[in-house]
Structure formats: C-alpha cells, structure tokens
C-alpha cells in the first residue's frame, strides 16, 4: 500500500495540470468563438507558413 503515497500525488498532479490548462485557456479567451475555431482548423490559409 506504500505505492499510494506516490500514486495519489501523481494523480492529483495530473488532474491539476488539466485544471491549470483549463484556466489558461479561459484566460486567453479560447472559449469566445467555439464555432469559429471549429471552422478555422479547416482553412488552408497558413498551412505553409505561420500567420505573421
């Protein structure tokens, strides 16, 4: 059962990373235009080089 002392912190850490990523996405306004983002992935405009 000693393994729990590693596994529980690891699982919490992984969950925490997800939560932090969610906060970051929220803060950088990535939920403002879900329809647009879903469609933007289909455009080929910046396939060759990144948008300046």
């Amino acid at each position: 059962m000693e393994i729990l002392t590693y596994l529980i912190p690891v699982s919490l850490l992984l969950g925490g990373i997800g939560l932090a990523a969610f906060f970051w996405a929220l803060k950088t306004k990535q939920f403002d235009d879900p329809t647009g983002d879903a469609n933007r992935i289909l455009t080929k405009d910046w396939d060759d080089k990144p948008k300046p």
Partner: peptide, 28 residues
Amino acid sequence: HCAACISTVEQALAATPGVQSSRVNLTL
C-alpha cells in the same frame, strides 16, 4: 457561416490599405 467565409473576409480586409489586422468571430 463557414470556414471559407472566415478566410474570404479576413483576406479581403487584410488587402485593404490601413487595416492592420482583423478577426472574425463566427459565434457572434
């Protein structure tokens, strides 16, 4: 309403003199 609309609008605006950047919000 579509992906092509985004490119068309943004490219047309980018080609307009004086426009620095534009972004379409398709949800709104």
